[in-house]
């Protein structure tokens, strides 16, 4: 189980990475930690001409602390967040979720940007960052653009990224002291992919109330105004309407009743176990 041969480049600047990606007639793939691409290469599911390793680009391995948000470079690893080498502005949400991604040895190399760009519906970052209201910033030959994380993922394994674009950072808003968040994922075994994810955030001081149903067959279902559904994130038994959420899932294409049940329960438990 060995990859096909490929060429390798390791630029030290975003611009030069983009130049590699923009070459015509070359199937180039970006690699960061390689924890998703590596297996696919080994299995020859992916057979690129060129691998562009972006981990030597310093700005992608850095973090900027702004007044209202923190900007995390795309190559920051899951364990960087788990260990809080990245300052926590999410009342522990990101560190907690990071610690549940796959296994420690994977978290030591896997990156937040790689995970988002891989656009796996079952991955953790897409769901929790959608709940937190994060944005992603991409650079390309045409300039830079910033979009909401839930819009970055357009479908299973498809991110809104052009061949010559590079995800450079993730902007996570700072939560207020009164914010509450919850996250629940259902896996058959530790470190295994999620069959259902529920996530929510209420931040009354900032007027934010978001809920996410993730690990669907496609992009997560994101409710950007979820106040009616989750209330203040307390006492879900009073507010949370299981049937309504089930109908919502069905309307979004989740036809299998067991899938629906599992996802609805995941969101309810996320609220029950809020922090």
């Amino acid at each position: 189980m060995k990859p096909v041969n490929f060429d390798y480049a390791r630029p030290s600047e975003v611009a030069s990475a983009i130049r590699y990606l923009a070459q015509d007639g070359v199937s180039a793939k970006i690699i960061a930690g390689g924890q998703s691409l590596g297996p696919m290469l080994n299995m020859r599911l992916v057979q690129p001409d060129l691998i562009v390793d972006i981990t030597a680009i310093e700005e992608l391995r850095s973090v900027q602390d702004r007044s209202d948000a923190i900007v995390i470079g795309a190559c920051v690893s899951h364990s960087d967040i788990e260990d809080r080498r990245v300052p926590d502005v999410t009342r522990g949400a990101m560190a907690s979720v990071a610690s549940g991604i796959a296994y420690r040895a994977v978290r030591n190399r896997g990156t937040i940007g790689g995970s988002l760009t891989h656009a796996d519906p079952s991955a953790d970052w897409i769901s929790i960052l959608a709940a937190l209201g994060a944005d992603v910033t991409l650079n390309g030959s045409g300039g830079s653009r910033t979009i909401a994380v839930e819009n970055y993922m357009v479908g299973a394994l498809e991110a809104d990224i052009a061949q010559s674009e590079l995800l450079v950072s993730i902007t996570v808003p700072k939560l207020s002291a009164s914010a509450r968040w919850g996250y629940y994922k259902s896996c058959r075994k530790t470190g295994e992919f999620a069959h259902a994810i529920g996530a929510f955030l209420t931040d009354p001081d900032r007027g934010v109330s978001r809920a996410v149903i993730g690990a669907t067959e496609t992009r997560p279902f994101v409710m950007t105004d979820a106040a009616a559904l989750i209330g203040d994130g307390r006492n879900p038994e009073r507010v949370f309407d299981q049937d309504a959420v089930g109908r919502l899932c069905e309307s979004l294409g989740m036809t299998d009743p067991i899938d629906r049940q599992t996802h609805v329960v995941a969101l309810r438990r996320a609220i029950e176990r809020a922090h």
Binding site: Y8, R10, G33, V63, D80, N108
Partner: peptide, 14 residues
């Protein structure tokens, strides 16, 4: 910060 093992070497051309 970054993947373990990364950042120890500079750029390498294709």
């Amino acid at each position: 910060l970054g993947p373990a093992g990364a950042g120890r070497a500079g750029a390498v051309a294709r």
